[in-house]
C-alpha cells in the first residue's frame, strides 16, 4: 500500500448543502501536494476530515491505511487556519504540552526553532501578536516527525519575505518520506515546491496530477487554475 491518504466515495454536507460529493482520491506517500480551489470549495473541510476535526461524513477515509482515529492523529500534524492554544499558555508550556502527547514531537528541535523565530519561551499566548502566534503554531507542527502534514493556508495573509521563511521552515523540517497536503491561493509562489496539484471545486476533484505531467503540457499551475476555475478570478 503506497497511499498516505485514501478517500473513497467521501461525501460531506452541511445541512442540505453538499460541499464534497463522492470524492475518490489517493495521495501517495512522500508527496508534497498543493490543494487549490476557490473560496468555499471545501478545501478546509477536506483537511478537517483528514485531521479528524469533522466526523459526520459518509464514505471511507483512510490515513496511513487506518480509519481516522487516535492512530492517525498520532501520525498527522495538523496546522489549522486559526490559533488554537489556550490564552494562558506560554510558548514553553505549549511545547511541553505537545511533547507530553506526541511521541514524535522533538522538544529540542522546538526550542531551537523558538529561538530562531525570536520568540520568548515565557511569553504567554495572550500577549503575542497574531504573527507570533502563527509562528508558534508552525513550529509546534513542524517539530513533529509526522508521516503527514496537513497545513491549511500557512501562507495566508503574510508578506512575501515571511512567506519564504514559512516555506523554508516547512521544507527544511519535514522528514524525507513525509507527505504534505498544503492548501494555498499563492499558486505562483508555490509551483516550484509541489509534486502534485489537487484542485477541487463544484463538490468534486477537478484535477489531481503530478506537477511534472502538468508542466509537460506546457502550462503553469496558475494557467491551469484559471482554466479549471474561469469564474474564480
Amino acid at each position: 500500500m503506497t497511499e498516505m491518504i485514501q478517500l473513497k466515495q467521501m461525501t460531506k454536507s452541511y445541512g442540505s448543502k453538499v460541499v464534497l460529493e463522492h470524492i475518490d482520491l489517493a495521495i501517495p506517500r512522500g508527496a508534497i501536494v498543493g490543494l487549490m480551489g476557490p473560496n468555499g470549495c471545501g478545501k478546509t473541510t477536506m483537511m478537517k476530515i483528514i485531521a479528524g476535526m469533522i466526523n459526520d461524513y459518509s464514505g471511507i477515509v483512510r490515513i496511513d491505511g487506518q480509519p481516522v482515529g487516535p492512530h492517525t492523529k498520532a501520525v498527522v500534524a495538523y496546522l489549522p487556519d486559526r490559533t488554537y492554544l489556550p490564552q494562558w499558555m506560554s510558548a514553553k508550556q505549549a511545547i511541553n504540552y505537545m511533547a507530553d502527547f506526541f511521541k514524535n514531537f522533538d522538544k529540542e528541535k522546538a526550542l531551537v526553532m523558538l529561538s530562531q523565530f525570536q520568540l520568548d519561551p515565557a511569553q504567554k499566548v495572550k500577549t503575542m501578536s497574531k504573527g507570533m502566534q502563527e509562528k508558534l503554531l508552525l513550529l509546534l507542527t513542524m517539530s513533529r516527525a509526522a508521516k503527514l502534514y496537513v497545513l491549511d493556508e500557512p501562507l495566508g495573509g503574510v508578506d512575501p519575505s515571511a512567506r519564504q521563511f514559512i516555506m523554508d521552515t516547512i521544507l527544511n523540517n519535514r522528514p524525507e518520506d513525509s507527505t504534505i497536503l498544503l492548501s494555498t491561493h499563492m499558486i505562483y509562489d508555490m509551483e516550484r515546491v509541489f509534486d502534485y496539484a489537487l484542485m477541487i471545486g463544484r463538490k468534486q476533484v477537478l484535477l489531481f496530477d503530478s506537477v511534472e505531467n502538468l508542466e509537460a503540457q506546457g502550462k503553469t499551475l496558475n494557467e491551469l487554475f484559471q482554466e479549471v476555475f474561469p469564474y474564480a478570478g
Binding site: G52, M53, P70, K73, R82, T83, L85, P86
Partner: peptide
C-alpha cells in the same frame, strides 16, 4: 476546550 478554537488542539490529540 472541546468545541471552540481550542477544540482544534484537543481533538488533534492521539486519544480516544
Amino acid at each position: 476546550s472541546l468545541f471552540s478554537e481550542r477544540g482544534y488542539l484537543t481533538l488533534s490529540l492521539p486519544v480516544s
